[in-house]
Design a protein around this nucleic acid. Sequence first.
DNA 1: AAAAATAATTAGTTATACCTAATTTTATAA
DNA 2: TTATAAAATTAGGTATAACTAATTATTTTT
Lengths: 234, 234
Amino acid sequence: MLFALFIYFCRQPYLSSMNTLSEENYLKAIFSLTQKSEEKISPTAIAETMGNNAASVIDMLRKLTDKQLIEYDKKQGVRFTPKGLKDSILIVRKHRLWEVFLVEKLGFHWDEIHDIAEELEHVSNISMADRLDKFLGFPEYDPHGDPIPKANGKLPKPFTISLTEVTIGNTCKVGAVKDTSSSFLQYLLKLGIGIGSTIKVLERIDFDKSLVIQINGQHTNTVSQLFSENILIA
Amino acid sequence: MLFALFIYFCRQPYLSSMNTLSEENYLKAIFSLTQKSEEKISPTAIAETMGNNAASVIDMLRKLTDKQLIEYDKKQGVRFTPKGLKDSILIVRKHRLWEVFLVEKLGFHWDEIHDIAEELEHVSNISMADRLDKFLGFPEYDPHGDPIPKANGKLPKPFTISLTEVTIGNTCKVGAVKDTSSSFLQYLLKLGIGIGSTIKVLERIDFDKSLVIQINGQHTNTVSQLFSENILIA
DNA sequence: AAAAATAATTAGTTATACCTAATTTTATAA
DNA sequence: TTATAAAATTAGGTATAACTAATTATTTTT
């Protein structure tokens, strides 16, 4: 009898250990917001990153709270529970590992991989991430230069200094791109800029803060401020 | 005006070129039934393979018919349209290629891969199958010995002759397993039998049609009729 | 401090894909 | 041929996860 009660009270939280596709996408969006800024995470902000409706977000926040993946109140915004953080990091880990796979093993270009990895990241096998990690040789950064969470959840140091901050005359290497939209990535491809490319900053135009840069010691180009802000140096 | 009408009438069938997860699972189930026997494919049979309800199947058959993936009437059962067949074969192709990947590249055992491949097979990028195929060296058979459809939709010859048909005293090689359940695959693992293993049939027991076999020229074992029926020889 | 704007929330609706139960149709056996 | 069983189908319902529109809270501006 007592045992039955025990079972009864243990049911709820442990039963729902797996997350739905939709839940995973919310976790990912919330995680991405925690990385992007220090501000509190609001339903509206989540709706924006997910391209959906705040009302839908509210619904889901209730669900994620019930599953003890997040805590939410209007004052503090959304915050992860330890379990929620762990789950989110695993999704990001899988996403970025699959991106490496798609580029290194299947020969996709870096502007094609995001959407594919969005599908692959949800594959639920428990040892998948670790096996993939090993197979790929434990890469630290994905093809956009984003740090890949380790098996223990730790993230390698992300690149944070943008091309706008490089002193005139200095040379640097591209560590990551901030914007990962196809249009930006394809433009970079056209300019011959990729992760590891060498960029020498020749001149800064005061008028609009555009930069004249030399790419891989070869051709020079003028690039906009927006462009420079989205190049992070190694 | 006429043009607007043209657009209007063209909408429906072409709009819905991508299939949902659920639709893909039905296509796969129907395909698997076409491979297994010559009988007409009934809603009940589909419900059985999918482990769901015949009423649900009827619903989906209507949807797949609307999308021009199948044709269905009670007399003839379910049959693919060319488009439906093409889509199904692509799913099977992806499933089996991913299975090869999971075993060859990630080191999974053959009893672990089915469910993972069920998730991977739905990844929708148009060049995924072909890139994966190339990366894996264009394998002809998956880790269970099932033929992998080629890019043009053609299937390599499947293995059809079971161990029950091997003459006493003869030696054969395992080409495929019919049953791919974990319990069977794990038992085979325990016996040291895999694809390519050598089996010599030493004796047939009249009473229950069990076989005494020698595995890889080493140890001998007695196996049931059900067991032998599920080993297909190369 | 009141008005206006923005954000959060609720209420009610929709589509998908499943379900059960009841009914109709078809096939099989008496 | 009729009774019975099995299969197909319909009707109606559920959960998920989205939506719109309306309402309530909270900020911001005046």
